[in-house]
Design a protein around this nucleic acid. Structure first.
Lengths: 242, 242
DNA sequence: GAGTGGTCTAGACCACTTT
DNA sequence: AAGTGGTCTAGACCACTCA
């Protein structure tokens, strides 16, 4: 069997759009039973593999719930779980037309303190690199970066100055991560933060802490402090994950 | 051709894990050329469809870059773009073993003011429902919710008291969303916020604004204000999207 | 022109779940 | 026992891109 015409979008994409539309428009409300793969195959005049591909994608995206024997239904209860994209610092600035630069304020090679080792989930005395950087937008400091790098996982960082590439970007290029954890909070600026970011003490700041692992080993832990009023984290997204 | 044994995990899952391991461990560094589908087919002794399925997933997850003729490579530059999950307010509390309740402080049915209509991207005079709610954890207020609902899209909200279900959850159950946008910032508590959340004015607070659309129409806009010190948003995730 | 991925098919067997 | 999704195959044609 051969196909005949030039498909602007692929068949499974068109089927997917069609089904997504029915779900997101509310035409098929949560809990609504979706035709079986056999029925869809007939409806769209294609093979079962093709509709199966679409349904698998929709299930991964969390739009439908698939069950054997009873068939698939529209996901009964959409999760409020949503996701916020965290952008690269440089991109944040340049996207707004600003000029970006960063500066390494402090660079200390030392052994992990016991408390630190516990936090990082590494052994006492493991060598780490502690960095403090300032990120500037149009020559005004707008982000303070306090970072600890596990040299056991990222030995190449030992001799890296981070003058050209900021630590975050450098790490991404050299050490792929497999898992990460974020925490975001609002805190008043400490004396140190106030001085470095040129604020008055107590100014509300957005603090993001991120820890990154590669295959179970901690790669790095970083705290990014932004003056809260001037800078925002934002993102636009859809409920689909695929 | 038939299969013989009981696969603990499916074949494509095992192939995927294998390839992911090679990429995430660094054995295949960014830019490394991945065997062609033909080679993988031979290596794993399966059909091309199966390796194609795996490679498609890895490409969707952003781990590999696929190109015709030249073949696929490990994604040269992992994006720092990551995602932060935003959880349901009630789940946030109960996950920590607290007791949760909410209270509707104010409920006003009115026509959208011109400025508001502009923000929401709706027409002047569209009827909206403005809500103010307090969310309590163990009887202490921990989140202030200011919400506007577009009644044109969600007419059922007109007669809903939101006494049982908080507005966020109610909307999820009744009006599926297709797109959303988040913004997070740190601000000092205003007099109004301080009073409602029982804080002193100027206390750093985490403010999350979320706007939700369904098929291009604004469904709702909400501002959630959390005392910054006590509450944090956090999430754990992997770079894979699939 | 040749190599690669993108897509699709027709059919098959299996696993799970409900009846 | 029967219905449904989960997976896999062998083969095919096409589209894109490089040489």
């Amino acid at each position: 069997m051969s196909k005949e015409s030039a498909p602007r979008s692929s068949l499974h994409e068109r089927i997917r759009s069609d089904l997504e539309g029915k779900i997101l428009s509310g035409a098929w409300p949560p809990g609504h039973r979706i035709p079986t793969e056999q029925e869809l195959r007939t409806e769209y005049g294609c093979s079962r593999m093709t509709v199966n591909k679409v349904m698998t994608q929709l299930a991964n995206a969390g739009l439908v719930l698939r069950r054997r024997k009873t068939g698939s239904i529209v996901m009964p209860q959409q999760s409020q779980n949503a996701v916020l994209e965290i952008k690269d610092i440089k991109d944040e600035v340049t996207a707004q037309g600003g000029t970006y630069r960063h500066e390494v304020v402090e660079r200390v090679l030392r052994k992990a303190a016991p408390s630190e080792a516990g936090e990082l989930g590494i052994e006492d005395g493991t060598e780490v690199l502690a960095l403090t950087c300032l990120h500037y937008a149009d020559e005004a400091p707008f982000c303070l970066e306090d970072r600890v790098i596990n040299l056991e996982v990222a030995p190449a960082a030992r001799t890296e100055s981070f003058a050209e590439l900021a630590p975050g970007v450098w790490l991404l290029r050299h050490i792929p991560w497999s898992e990460a954890e974020h925490t975001i909070a609002a805190v008043g600026a400490s004396a140190r933060v106030a001085k470095l970011l040129d604020l008055s003490a107590g100014t509300p700041c957005l603090v993001m802490e991120r820890r990154t692992w590669r295959q179970g080993e901690t790669v790095t832990e970083v705290r990014l402090t932004y003056p809260g009023a001037a800078n925002r984290l934002s993102a636009r997204f859809t409920p689909s994950a695929t």
